[in-house]
Simulated scan of single mutants.
Amino acid sequence: MKELIPKDEYGIFADAHDTEMIVPKQWIYIIEKEQNRVKVGVSAMPEERMKVLERTGGFKILRKQLLGPFQNGYQVECEIHRRMRYEKLISEWFAIPFETAVLVAEEVAESRGDINPKQNTDEVGTDASFSRLFPQYAEICNFYEALNDAGLTIYKDENGKIWFESEELGMFTAEFFSAFMKLSKTKLEEDK
């Protein structure tokens, strides 16, 4: 199979017109709230993300740890989640001591992460690359983060139908969700 975009010596895709390396911008964050509740996530702007989580989740972050930056942050995050799957509560939250979560995350980051010390911040960013390849990348990331914040997980069944799962409502379809939202909007308008 022919490569459309050449890779540099680190396996990172180079720009089609230039061989500058892409600066990794995905950070793994590990946060702890009360009762050994730990969240492991990925974000290009982890400090802002943690502020949003506190504000929308109604809790205070007790401790936090950042790892990265990575280009393959989502793959690193996925492997961390896989290794902690038996402690999973819901979505990206785990019932695990903070120190244990950090140790698992550091081990995965060391073995799977693509940190490249030769890169510097003057080089081309991932945002520019993703913007060229996927014009709606930021909106898609925001959408998935919103679903995650709402405690929703998305599944696709063998027929290709999309299903959502939440702790409160269980499994439901997009059609159900749409009808539920319309009903909620109507109810809000009636209450005014």
Rank of each mutant, 00 (worst) to 15 (best):
D8S: 05
F13W: 08
A16S: 02
H17R: 02
H17K: 05
T19N: 07
E20C: 04
I22M: 05
V23R: 09
K25Y: 10
W27K: 03
I31N: 11
E32V: 00
E32D: 10
K33S: 12
E34Q: 06
Q35T: 09
V38N: 08
K39I: 13
V40R: 09
S43Q: 11
R49L: 14
T56E: 13
G58E: 08
L62Y: 09
R63E: 15
Q65D: 13
Y74M: 02
Y74T: 02
E77I: 02
E77A: 05
C78N: 12
H81N: 07
R82H: 13
R85F: 04
Y86K: 04
L89K: 09
I90E: 11
A95E: 15
I96A: 11
T100F: 00
A101W: 00
V102M: 04
V104F: 09
V104Y: 05
A105E: 15
E110G: 13
S111R: 03
S111G: 14
R112K: 09
G113C: 06
D114R: 01
I115V: 09
N116E: 13
P117H: 07
T121P: 08
G125I: 10
S129R: 06
S131G: 15
S131T: 05
L133Q: 12
P135N: 09
I140S: 00
Y144M: 14
A146F: 06
A146C: 13
A146P: 11
L147F: 04
N148C: 13
L152C: 01
I154E: 15
I154Y: 03
D157T: 01
D157Q: 06
N159V: 08
K161S: 07
W163D: 12
F164C: 15
E165T: 05
E167V: 03
L169M: 06
G170C: 07
F172N: 03
A174V: 03
F176K: 01
K182Y: 12
L183R: 13
K185D: 14
K185Y: 08
K187W: 02
L188K: 02
